[in-house]
């Protein structure tokens, strides 16, 4: 800067030494905390060669774990999506008593440790639990089986979709729905042609986050699944099991699958964020755009 006086930064709060050391600290921490572990997964997974990697993945127990994880996601994600949309709709477009409380409760799973959720499910559905005897007499098996795994996963990921939708739908208000209804549209029609198109990116974003969390969930699932190899082991549980078997390469190979999933999620997430941010006709942008666009007289 030619005009900058000596010793003065170009802008308030901008100090070269401070800026560089701040950036340095962040970069070092990112390398240590995030990049290094991911690199290790990739390296270790292939440490005994690609053939061993393929064999590890093809192992029946690993394959079963992958399948179980996918099935869990296929059940839990759609249900939580429906739940999230319904909850966001109820909270943002209707008035009722206890609305604030509901909002807080929906967010609760974020602040509860997943393992607590798992233990709670044990107390409710376990043999000695609240509904245990009833369920047993009806021969319904929830714990140590797929239903338990799905329930625990759903508990942990319940807030994801609703949380993405609530702020957006709040900002959009009820005008669009009211307009559609006054024009003669039914409730379903209004939802599918007016509400949904305006929340689709946020919805997808929530679904993607929800899915990646369902597939990666460890704590709650480990309590309720019983870790039965080839039966109730999801992929994260299986990775831990392999590791305890001193099968590091196998465990890393399985872990690399989850890591790949994470990368796909990340890419989709960034793409979705671009979609959301780049759109001209967002309602939020609409309200404020009056002053930007000059009035053209007819």
């Amino acid at each position: 800067m030619v005009h900058a006086r000596k010793g003065k930064p170009p802008r308030v709060g901008d100090n070269i030494v401070f800026r560089r050391s701040l950036l340095g600290i962040v970069l070092v921490l990112v390398a240590l905390m995030i990049v290094a572990p991911l690199v290790v997964i990739a390296v270790e997974a292939f440490s005994r060669g690609a053939v061993y990697f393929a064999e590890s993945i093809a192992d029946p127990d690993t394959r079963h774990a992958i399948l179980l994880t996918v099935i869990t996601a296929l059940i839990a994600v759609p249900i939580n999506t429906a739940f999230g949309v319904a909850a966001a709709w109820a909270i943002t477009k209707h008035d009722f008593r206890g609305k604030r409380l509901l909002t807080v409760i929906i967010e609760l799973p974020f602040s509860v440790s997943p393992i607590v959720a798992g233990v709670a499910y044990l107390f409710v559905y376990g043999l000695q639990g609240l509904f245990g005897p009833v369920l047993q007499s009806m021969e319904i098996k929830i714990l140590f089986a797929l239903p338990g795994i799905v329930l625990a996963s759903m508990f942990v990921t319940a807030p994801f979709v609703a949380r993405e939708l609530i702020p957006l739908m709040q900002a959009q208000g009820r005008d669009l729905e009211e307009a559609a209804t006054s024009l003669g549209a039914s409730g379903w029609r209004t939802f599918f042609s007016v509400t949904l198109p305006n929340i689709k990116w946020a919805l997808l974003y929530g679904v993607v986050l929800c899915n990646s969390r369902v597939m990666g969930e460890f704590g709650a699932v480990s309590v309720v699944s019983g870790n039965i190899r080839g039966q109730t082991n999801t992929l994260p549980l299986h990775i831990e099991l392999l590791y305890h078997d001193y099968n590091a390469a196998g465990s890393f190979a399985a872990a690399s699958i989850l890591a790949c999933l994470a990368i796909v999620t990340l890419v989709v997430k960034v793409a979705l964020e671009r979609q959301g941010a780049g759109r001209v006709q967002r309602p939020a942008a609409l309200a404020g755009a009056d002053s930007i666009i000059p009035e053209t007289k007819p």
Binding site: D175, A179, T181, V194, N198, P283
Partner: peptide, 18 residues
Amino acid sequence: VRERGVGFVFQHYALFPH
């Protein structure tokens, strides 16, 4: 409102942005 046959114009237009 669906069957009332009214045309309603909102203060903030409420046009469908998509």
